[in-house]
Design a protein around this nucleic acid. Sequence first.
DNA 1: CTCCCTTTGAAGCTT
DNA 2: AAGCTTCAAAGGGAG
Length: 403
Amino acid sequence: MGLPAGGSLSLFCPGGDLGQPPPAHMGIPPPYQLDSKLAAGLARTPMYPFPGGTYPYPMLSPEMSQVAASWHTPSMYPISSAASGFRSPYPTSLPIPSSSLSSELYRFSPTLGGGLGLGLGPALVPPPSSKADVDSYQSRFARSLDKGGSSSANDKPTEPTSSNSKEQNKKPHIKKPLNAFMLYMKEMRAKVVAECTLKESAAINQILGRRWHSLSREEQAKYYEKARQERQLHMQLYPGWSARDNYGYGSKKKKRKKDRSPAELGGNNLKKCRARYGLDQQNQWCKPCRRKKKCVRYMEALAASSVLPMPQSPCSDEDVKLEELSDAFSDGEGDADTPLNSASSPGGLSALSSLASPAPEPPARHPVGTNPRDANNPLSVGQLTSPAWPRAARPPHEAISVS
DNA sequence: CTCCCTTTGAAGCTT
DNA sequence: AAGCTTCAAAGGGAG
């Protein structure tokens, strides 16, 4: 599905030498934060299999390295002050450097920064030193938020300024500040897209994820610093804001990847069709499941079992889609063997990453696209320099995979 | 039209 | 405290 049809992604990005994923600074934590999470993250494996033996993007080629270097030229990150501070622990106190403010503002006010805000020079916009300025930024930001609809509970800083009731319904919500990787993605996405004909965000993000790992510490530090500044500015702009405010935002994505272990929830009845019937009995699946939508049976079971109603996505496509992905590599038999959960969700991954131990054991299973049985798989354990799948402990729910 | 995918990281929530 | 979940961006794909 998410895969570029046809498989051979090399077509999408000529000159790709990504078959040699860069260990780069694998395991090197952010400069200011030596936590296991990142280390775990560094070892993640892309979910998009890149069949055909080549990782289709030249992100790691020397050529690209040069490009990447140019991307981080001072002109792009004129925040030399910030850069200079990367090495040392951050001065945790405000005030935020003006550079950071501007970097933040581009995001809060798209009109200021455009899509690739990071590319903006810092001093383009003065920091919201005055309340009027802050209000201005807030309102701009709020206006930029309506695209997804919202049901956020809080939203104190931004009241619905829109005229129509529809927009009032979906109160603009204050979005989370971008983290380092998100900032990086935002900046680099266009370049990756330009270099490759590939446009699918999922695939692009995989590339960006790998590139992220290939970045040097200093390069990553820039983004961590940026992210930190974003957070600080965000706190300034919206003192009372909490990430919790956005939970359930838009009524979608809610618990997208939540119920990963139906068994835990109540046995077979609470299994989704895929888990209950297996791949080879898809004809038994409920219609939504076949369509990769909510599993009605699951929903019913949930309701019947008085478990909290699941507003979303019980029939997580994770499994299904990953099946499909994994099927591209190994037919069927490996299904239960595929790291469905790992592959699936951001949440799952995050959770998994948090499980990572400093010295992860060799992965018991192989992420999609790293099937060692596939000798041609560029992402196979043998070929990857970063096979260390962070999951030292296998999530129990993997057992629910249909065998 | 709506939701999913896919990535990492931050933060909230749950146990 | 540790583990888990959600959300942040993005845009094509799929139903």
